[in-house]
Design a protein around this nucleic acid. Structure first.
Length: 507
RNA sequence: CGAGGCGUAGCGCAGCCUGGUAGCGCAUUUGGUUUGGGACCAAAGGGUCGCAGGUUCGAAUCCUGUCGCCUCGACCA
């Protein structure tokens, strides 16, 4: 619950500049981003009705609006996976604990955050289970039984579900002890094929973020110290939030033969040799909703990109008691015309709530387009239209609004992507000295710098600045891909990777 | 997990220090007036004071434990 804690945590700040000291502000709206980004985020999640806290530590309840959003995310991705010939399947939530223990790096990464089931009724289990933190192990186990010949490959599998990781500090959508995702798991006969899969998925994620969520993201490879526990190589898409922090928004891992060796996933080749499969895993989680909130949101609340918005257009019938019903009926007619074009539209038929209240309500929820429809408009054949992205209302002929609705939505989609891209570029600086590096990080920016690749140096930088290497952009990444040689900004040694690394503070 | 803060009506809070009838604003319900950017008047309903122990004649208030939330730190595929 959003109790007094967040408002009282820092009394000195509160006393001087917290707008919640104002009665009206306390009741309506959210804390401005510039005052306290954390408060802003927590309040938006609550007030826009995306999620609520549950009695279970760190586990949220996703409310209908949040669920509608997640369902749209799931649907789009699921269609794409299937279009790329992947098949879904369903694995148990419980995994034998010893499975997790079989791959050394995997254990080390996950052991501290495992929920363990060691009792059924009153009977203590000799071999406990864990609630899956991810399913490479149990899937590897099953694959070993399914795989005989190279002709069986590739396995192109994925499942939708939730996983459990007991993080010590949680935050709705960004880091919850149970979260929702798909996990892709594929097995291939060759390294090349597996690596092509990893890359194909990373690109799919990139398209999803760019075209559907209007999130500019940087495709790149993680440095060794930031790899998935058990991966040979990890690739990520990184987005910049409006506070300048980075959010890893999706990952795609090449696991080599590490898991196939641990779970005996092997096959006979055409040359009659025995070989271990090359496997991959990849995921986008409910965390992506956090990215959506923090990339596009403003002081009025959420801003939903039209391509993902559960509701794209809201119609507000405006009338008095005697003609409100008539206006609602007109709104329904208009809605039907928009729906016929495939637009997701709602008519706000609530009576006894003032128009101003409705405007603010839908702005908080981030609905891209609002149409007002009142007696005056009806009389003159116009509609009042307002985009969530701007401040101005437009009065336009009804036919123009109806006919131009798709273009309007596309325009908003493009505007959001452009805005977020500009923000990311404006808040990324290229530096060649460690002093500049520290100053830039301190001011909440991303840094592009040369690095020697030494994990010890990365650790030292993190201890010093709280910034980590986000990724090394791919050669064909949309941003920051330039090839360059230089010396490490931290150690002065020759730079690794042949290009600059993105550093930033992260969620 | 370490340090700090906070749990009182749906939301935001006061009351706690100094133990003695549980309050305020908003929201809700009803009636009326309103309605093109967060309406107004009137009346009404709503609370095991997070939970469990303890001290006391008596606990929202004092003590202990515990659960949950927030911030900083550590951790974070």
């Amino acid at each position: 619950m959003l109790r007094s804690a967040s408002l009282c945590a820092a009394p000195t700040r509160l006393a001087t500049m917290h707008p919640m000291t104002d009665k009206k502000a306390q009741q309506y709206g959210v804390t401005p981003q510039s005052v306290d980004f954390n408060d802003w985020y927590n309040e938006v999640v609550k007030k826009a009705d995306l999620a609520d806290n549950s009695p279970v530590a760190g586990a949220m309840v996703v409310k209908p609006y949040g669920s509608a959003l997640w369902e749209r995310i799931v649907r789009w991705l699921d269609d794409e996976f299937k279009a790329a010939d992947h098949e879904s399947l369903i694995f148990p939530t419980l995994i034998p604990m010893d499975f997790i223990m079989r791959e050394a790096d995997h254990v080390e990464g996950f052991a501290p955050e495992l929920f363990t089931v060691n009792k059924i009724g009153t009977e203590v289990l000799a071999e406990p289970y864990v609630l899956r933190p991810t399913s490479e192990t149990i899937i590897g186990h099953m694959w070993s039984g399914w795989l005989n010949s190279y002709r069986d490959l590739p396995f192109l599998h994925y499942q939708w579900g939730s996983v459990f990781r007991a993080e010590l500090r949680t935050k709705a959508f960004l880091r919850t002890s149970e979260f929702y995702w798909h996990e892709g798991h594929t097995a291939h006969a060759t390294q090349q094929e597996a690596q092509a899969e990893v890359r194909m998925i990373l690109d799919l994620y990139h398209r999803f973020c760019r075209d559907i969520l209007a999130l500019p993201v940087v495709r790149g490879e993680k440095t060794a110290s930031e790899r998935f526990a058990g991966a040979v190589s990890t690739f990520s898409i990184e987005g910049m939030m409006r506070d300048g922090k980075a959010l890893q928004s999706g990952t795609s891992h090449y696991l080599g033969q590490k898991f196939s060796r641990a779970f005996n996933v092997k096959f006979q080749t055409a040359a009659q040799a025995e070989e271990f499969a090359h496997t991959t895993s990849w995921a986008i989680s409910s965390r992506i909703i956090g990215a959506l909130i923090m990339t596009h949101g403003d002081d009025k609340g959420l801003m939903m990109p039209p391509n993902i918005a559960p509701t794209q257009v809201v119609i507000i019938p405006i009338g008095r008691k005697d003609n409100f019903g008539e206006m609602v009926a007109e709104g329904d007619k208009l809605a039907a015309e928009l729906k016929a074009q495939g637009v997701r539209v709602k008519v706000d038929r609530r009576d006894g709530v003032t128009n101003g209240f409705k405007y603010n309500d839908w702005e908080l929820k981030g609905v891209p387009v609002r149409i007002e429809l009142g007696p005056r408009d009806l009389e003159s054949g116009v509609l009042v239209v307002k985009n969530r992205t701007g401040d101005d209302k437009e009065t336009l002929p009804r036919a123009e609004v109806v006919g131009g609705i798709k273009a309007r939505l596309d325009g908003i989609q493009a505007e959001l992507l452009q805005r977020a891209t500009d923000f990311m570029l404006e808040n990324t600086v290229t530096v060649d000295s460690y002093d500049e590096f520290k100053a830039a990080i301190e001011s909440g920016k991303w840094v592009r710098a040369f690095h020697c690749g030494d994990p010890e140096s990365e650790k030292a930088i993190k201890d010093d600045t709280k910034a980590t290497a986000r990724n090394v952009p791919l050669d064909d990444a949309e941003f920051f891909a330039e090839k360059e040689e230089g010396v490490c900004v931290h150690t002065g040694k020759p730079a690794a990777y042949g290009k600059r690394v993105i550093f930033g503070r992260q969620y």
